[in-house]
Design a protein around this nucleic acid. Structure first.
Ligand SMILES: [Mn+2]
Ligand SMILES: [Mn+2]
Ligand SMILES: [Zn+2]
Ligand SMILES: [Zn+2]
Lengths: 130, 130
DNA sequence: GAAGATTATGATAACCGTTTTCATTTTGGC
DNA sequence: GCCAAAATGAAAACGGTTATCATAATCTTC
């Protein structure tokens, strides 16, 4: 059932090229650049389809930029939050914050909501940009 | 310096009509519906401009829906997180979680990032939908 | 390995929320 | 009222994403 694309490897490699979230069009350009020779890169359609599927399969994480662009990143650890540099866009994973367990049960009890989930993201200025 | 629109009142009233995040086009439709008589509603452009400015001024909060739509809500408390029902879309504010102070300083120290900010959102199933 | 069915790909158009443009209308100061 | 400044409406432009469909690659079965 390997319902995969022949470009999965190159797409994931492009995402790993630098530690930041990338748009589909950036990934497409990165793949094109990484091919010196005359071999043609995948079409933009294929990159869109591949990233969409990789996200659905949980292979890549997605966020939405402020202007509605979908950005992708290949994450390493299973449970983490994202920390982004506001200046250079550098992204890194920070370990899951245990304190959120307490918060979660408190919110569940005080509101009556069930099946609670959360999303926590950080933004700041990285050491290089400071 | 009241650089406001003559429709601010109606836009905010539409947002308050029901407790959920609304898109610009929804707000536009709500305003149109709320006018029984022959008086014409504001144009869609004006609603876009008004919501954009109200968000910039901090009068309304914005989030991005999964498909990239910008959604707006008129919030009441100064510091809070959002809790959304996955079924009906109901939104409510939950008080700011103090535990995040600890998390924030820990992330700052362990990563070297400065000027850290966070965004924490909750989603679940509200009592009515359960 | 050939024939046919199935799936992936590429080029293009369609889609849709949002922004820009600009002519017209409304507002505010004098 | 008169003029300048700001707001509005209608339409076009924009940009990221998805849908379409003909073609190409891959897989199945014999
Ligand atoms: Mn991640
Ligand atoms: Mn809010
Ligand atoms: Zn940086
Ligand atoms: Zn509900």
């Amino acid at each position: 059932m390997g319902a995969g694309s022949r470009y999965d490897g190159e797409v994931l490699a492009a995402l790993r090229r630098e530690d930041r979230f990338r748009s589909c069009q950036e990934v497409h350009a990165l793949i094109a650049d990484s091919r010196g020779g005359p071999q043609r890169p995948p079409s933009l359609s294929t990159v869109y389809r591949t990233l969409h599927r990789l996200a659905r399969e949980g292979e890549v994480d997605t966020i939405q930029s402020e202007d509605g662009e979908r950005l992708y990143r290949r994450c390493e650890t299973p449970s983490h939050h994202h920390l982004l540099c506001r200046v250079c866009g550098h992204a890194q994973e920070v370990p899951h914050a245990r304190e959120l367990r307490t918060v979660l049960t408190r919110v569940e009890r005080s509101t009556g909501f069930t099946g609670l989930a959360y999303s926590l993201e950080f933004a700041g200025v990285c050491p290089d940009c400071a």
